[in-house]
Amino acid sequence: MSTATAPSIHLHASDVARTQHAPGARRRKIGKILLSLLAIGISLAWIFPVYWMVLSAFTPNAWLRTTTPEFLPVHATLANFRAAMSGDGFSNSLKMSVVITITTVVAVLAFAFLAALAISRWRFKGRTTFILAVLFVQMLPAEGLFIAQYKMLSNANLLNSVIGISVLYTAAIVPFTIWMLRGFVAGVPADLEEAAMVDGLSRFQAFLRITFPLLAPGLVASGVYAFLQAWNEYTVALIALPSGDRATLPLWLSNFLSASAQRGVDWGQVMAASTLIAIPVIVFFLFVQNRMTSGLVSGAVKG
């Protein structure tokens, strides 16, 4: 390549490299094929529980009880879904889940966004303390607090109420969301806003037209994070919504399984119920997954 200008030692080295190239390349190719097979095997293993849930949901219970499982949908039916959705349990829980999740996501985004703005745009006294507190608070486990939270809600007559559990959810989700959004806000240079202000926009206008659109991916990622946390939450719901008819969907599913267990589990119905809860989340998750992963990660990396 560079024979004319390169010193002789360099030439020698590149010759050695070239002679090793041919067998090395073949070995690398075989290695790559093996790695690809491994990756596909892992993919199948990881996806199998999801596939099995959906498949079982569409399979009549009689076939699920046979000793040899069927791995393809040969007897598909919707009967399991009809049975799981019959009665008020599912629709009531769906309503509870929707209301609680929306309340939580809106509150989390508003509160966390303001706080993220404060700590990434201003240096003020107590800033380090606040960040330290946020970092510690987001690590506090629900089980370290839920007895006290239960007593707090019960003393305030807020057990089984939307507002009670929404306060607990918001407080639990806000810290990590602040941490996440902080990375995004810090990623938008304040100079940009100042440049817009020099061009005659007010601070508010500059923020709205310049900074806010740039933060949209971060807000979407945080919103999705908050949505998934609130929608899937079980532990706090277990103590905050002890009455069965005020259950959120995860709580309803676990009650549904327990009720079914009393007469020999009808796995078809239980899987139909699981699918009903999981599919909207999975679809939503995949729909925003690019922003979701880059959001979680860049928040974490920059944070």
């Binding site: 999801v50 998934l228 929608w231 999975i282 998750f285 995949l286």
Partner: peptide
């Protein structure tokens, strides 16, 4: 991996 990640815990 994303499908597994997206699965609600109780499900």
């Amino acid at each position: 991996l994303l499908l597994a990640w997206a699965m609600p815990m109780v499900a």
